[in-house]
Design a protein around this nucleic acid. Structure first.
Lengths: 376, 376
DNA sequence: TTGTAAGCGTTATCAG
DNA sequence: CTGATAACGCTTACAA
């Protein structure tokens, strides 16, 4: 009687089946499923029951077709060509947050497979793919090297949210962490530990978060009345090797810094390696504070003191802003969101040692011949 | 003349617009876009040109509706409740591989927002969501604690591929690494370095890869004629803390092992920490080999020797198998794929020291008072 | 080689 | 409060 297809033991039914079984029209079923008020309690209950019996799931495709809205959010992850894809652990956690954020509001995430340069199948540009899938909004993260696509995306009036990337124009906004404040926090912490010769390994300056962290470093230095010493600002690219190289340079400086603020944990990891290689020690010879608090931070030796970004929170905030952009087209673009950061004290800054002084206090790791027990 | 909607400076056009502009019927345009051969070169060219002019992108929703195929692959990530979501770095890379794999074959990834227990919005079970989106196939990764959903998914005849999770029934298959072989490799390597007292920190034994790695450990021990020593098999949960605890136990053993094979890098990181805390050294006192080669492996101190899984390759293989499952419904399920692993030698096993012996050779890190310069 | 027209499963408009 | 029915954009027999 009811036109269902039995498929592998499961029933695939559509709105018509539910309508017939409930003895109402498809329009009514649709109303029930869309939560319209003007349906009698009685029929509503009946429809819902029959739908459950049939294990009915409305077709997203059909709905998208008629409503011109897919309830899908596209995610695009760029990063530099050297480090393709979502290699950086930071993005992983943001993605988790985003997933929860959109999920709670009834959206799903569509992961755009980044185009392989040579491969010319399927729809190409993001803009085109957005239209193809009737994507309601796009989230961008990772380094944009002034990607032209982004401009096109913004011009296309598609709601766009970015993480850590300043965008202007179109229906867009972005979320970021308090990078400036975090950097100040790091410097202040090192200073409170007695350090005055504080250097920094900055990130790529074309990226806003990196620039902000550098400004924060300088600002706090100034606020503390500390001089800025030549060569104390090195630039890396957020990844391990650059941090190692930068630290090597810092260690070779005539006036060697006693503390370093690395603008990313991965670079801090590289820095530790450089210090090790030089036969020196973190934090005894060089105290170190990172930024991000990625998963590896506590696993490094010594465990890394760092400025924690709320990565999951970033993703959730992005999701919420994006959906606001989507669902309130008349409103102004939502505000730029800046999430607070926090200092996580571990071993690399030296704060957990017995003596709060800067100089070579005994390490927890037993040493046969402790050296330079006092230097200042 | 042509019915386009100008929207934010961009044109949204459909198949009808292209047809009219090209002076053909929509059917012909459809044929062109689906690569049917029976279209004259001339009209094909003309249609393609006009489509480009209009910047036409076919509607995925409409196509899905009529073809009952979405070209969408669902991704579900479970992990233990203690470590929700795709927290483990392993999954991130597999995801990248999967993205490329499906992308190359014209599919996109739909990330299922895992249901928050309390939240009752939207379609619930995976099965239902699969049908809702007309998902063509599902990829599962992460720990399944005998999730009931999986059974339902398999019963629903939806193509399912899993990473590292044995599944049976339905249209399904799985991909995994050569866990057994990798474990053997690790043990053999440690033995070749002169070790005979080799312990292991195994993973959760209810998971196939963990079980296989343990079997591999035992097998190789046996093959090398090494005795199995009581207490030498500790079990962790793949995460940091468990590795630390396990190593503590191992260090307290009457016959302390000189080498340890940790069945996961994260656990190896914990193990390093335990060794540090005990005032001992890796690799001098305890040589260590991990498994996975996640991003942090080279960043640990000492850099971790490990068995590398081809994580991106795993993802790509999964993608290919899944799409085969999708596109060749008549064929048998594709074979279980076991990808080879490789030994990556770094510092933690002690192989890179001057003396190939087991005992305390000098570390690269300069020491003020080298101890036990030779012990063997 | 091409066109016509009947769906695919929904929602929305308009009557009742 | 409920029911017909016309879209939505595309594919696919069936005709020509």
């Amino acid at each position: 009687m009811v036109a269902e297809i039995v498929f592998g033991g499961t029933t695939i039914s559509n709105i018509k089946d539910v309508a017939e079984l409930s003895g109402v029209s498809v329009a009514t079923v649709s109303r029930v499923f869309n939560g319209y008020a003007d349906v009698s309690e009685k029929t509503k209950r009946r429809v819902l029951e029959k739908a459950r019996e049939l294990d009915y799931a409305p077709s997203a495709a059909a709905r998208t077709l008629v409503k011109q809205r897919s309830h899908l959010v596209g995610v695009v992850l760029f990063t530099g060509e050297d480090h393709p894809d979502l290699q950086h652990p930071f993005f992983q956690e943001v993605l988790v947050g985003m997933k929860h954020g959109v999920g709670a509001l009834g959206y799903d995430l569509l992961l755009f497979a980044t185009e392989v340069p040579g491969d010319n199948r399927g729809p190409h540009s993001y803009v085109k793919r957005v239209r193809h899938h009737q994507i309601d909004g796009v989230a961008l993260m990772g380094v944009s090297r002034d990607d032209l696509e982004i401009q096109r995306l913004l011009e296309s009036e598609t709601p766009v949210i970015t993480i850590d990337l300043e965008v202007a124009g179109g229906r867009s906004s972005y979320v970021t962490s308090d990078n400036l404040g975090g950097a100040r926090l790091a410097v202040r912490h090192l200073h409170s530990l007695g350090h005055t010769k504080i250097a920094t390994i900055a990130g790529p300056q074309r990226m806003k978060p990196s620039a902000d962290r550098l400004i924060g470093y300088r600002t706090e230095l100034h606020a503390l009345g500390l001089p800025s010493i030549p060569g104390y600002e090195q630039e890396g690219d957020f990844y391990l090797d650059s941090g190692e190289a930068a630290m090597r340079t810092l260690l070779a400086l005539p006036e060697r810094p006693t503390a370093v603020f690395a603008a990313a944990d991965m670079m801090a990891a590289g820095a530790i390696r450089a210090v090790d290689a030089a036969g020196l020690r973190v934090p005894d010879d060089v105290a170190l504070v990172g930024f991000d608090d990625i998963q590896i931070a506590p696993m490094l030796s010594p465990a890394l003191t760092t400025i924690r970004q709320d990565k999951v929170g970033l993703g959730m905030a992005a999701a919420r802003s994006l959906i606001e952009l989507i669902e309130r087209p008349e409103e102004l673009n939502p505000p730029v969101l800046t999430l607070p950061v926090e200092l996580v004290v571990r071993a690399s800054c030296g704060a957990t040692r017995r003596q709060p002084a800067v100089e070579g206090a005994p390490r927890r790791r037993k040493e046969v011949a402790p050296r330079r027990r006092a230097r200042g």
